[in-house]
């Protein structure tokens, strides 16, 4: 297991992390002196602090992360979001955090930038459709944001609501395959407070492209990708399990929990393994065994102690 490298790691891992940091500082200085460095991981505009949240596998090329997206607000095909999101305006933006909290508050993106230092985390992303990526996100822990508004004792769940803008999002203008808009996702409060749960404002060091959920999205690396609500305008702390979009659409296919679990299949396909996304053509295309909790079991398995994960998929 131990694909994750968290603070308690072996010596060899520390070495590679130092190499990692060195490379990064080299890139930063390169950018600062105006050298054009044609690396996929050139230092971005966000100046994110590196962290030890990373995985051994190489990051998915940026071009794939930003052109292969499920974002039904912009269309049903993987290529639709990048094609159809050009008219979307992620600025100015506010996110309202309210519900069962002591200090309900509306944050602008500038407020968030001032309050939450941006850090980089390289996470696995496992889609419920049995493909996966490794993505360098930039953002902050959701727990830090929730700490600012102070959840009340009877808050048990957190609901995330995506933006509703039919004028800018062609997928929201109705039609056959339309979901119930706005898109809603949810977590149990203890899941939301887990240190892994992340609010991303960027990827690969730059602000989130529209097609990836600009300007603010949720990333929950041990759950299937659809849990990661994009372009969030409201975060509500509530007492009851929220009615989430995919779960209401097809409850037997998409559970509320949606933890990555190779032993619980989707009704139409196995979840035992996954296609590794990456621009490699047919013959470099990889397939890897899917790990329980997407490899994050050490950090999150305790959240589900005693729960029947077959029933609560």
């Amino acid at each position: 297991m131990a694909r994750l490298r968290l603070p308690a790691v072996s010596g060899s891992d520390i070495t590679s992390r130092e190499a990692w940091l060195n490379r990064r500082s080299f890139l930063v200085s390169g950018a600062a002196t105006g050298l054009g460095i044609g690396s996929a991981r050139a230092a971005g505009t966000l100046k994110a602090r590196a962290t030890s949240y990373t995985v051994k596998d190489p990051p998915t090329p940026r071009v794939d992360v930003t052109t292969y997206n499920n974002f039904y607000e912009f269309g049903l095909d993987k290529g639709d979001p990048v094609q159809n999101s050009g008219g979307f305006h992620p600025e100015p933006w506010t996110v309202r955090v309210d519900g069962l909290v002591r200090q309900p508050r509306t944050f602008s993106m500038d407020d968030l930038a001032a309050l939450m230092p941006v850090e980089e985390r390289i996470y696995r992303m496992r889609c419920v459709e049995a493909w996966s990526m490794v993505i360098p996100w930039d953002g902050f822990a959701l727990a830090a944001l929730l700490g600012v508004v102070e959840p009340l004792g009877d808050a048990k769940y957190v609901a995330f609501e995506s933006v509703l803008r039919p004028d800018e999002m062609p997928g929201q203008r109705g039609g056959l395959a339309s979901l119930d808009w706005p898109y809603v996702e949810g977590l149990r409060l203890d899941e939301a407070m887990n240190p892994l749960t992340f609010m991303a404002v960027g990827l690969y060091g730059d602000r989130l492209p529209n097609q990836n959920g600009a300007p603010l999205r949720l990333v929950v690396p041990w759950k299937y990708g659809f849990k990661g609500a994009k372009s969030i305008v409201r975060i509500r702390l509530v007492a009851d399990m929220p009615r989430t979009t995919w779960h209401s659409m097809a409850p037997e296919e998409y559970g509320f929990y949606a933890n990555v679990n190779p032993t619980v299949d989707h009704p139409r396909w196995s979840q035992g393994s996954e296609r590794v996304i990456g621009s490699s053509g047919f013959f470099g295309a990889g397939r890897r065994t899917t790990e329980m909790f997407n490899g994050y079991g050490e950090q999150v398995a305790s959240l589900y102690a005693g729960m029947d994960l077959r029933r609560w998929y």
């Binding site: 998915t60 071009v63 794939d64 052109t67 292969y68 993987k78 290529g79 493909w131 296609r275 996304i277 990456g278 621009s279 490699s280 053509g281 047919f282 013959f283 470099g284 295309a285």
Partner: peptide
Amino acid sequence: FWYGAHNQLGADPVN
């Protein structure tokens, strides 16, 4: 097939 073999089918060529 030619596109896929030459990495012209995008991120998830097999699918």
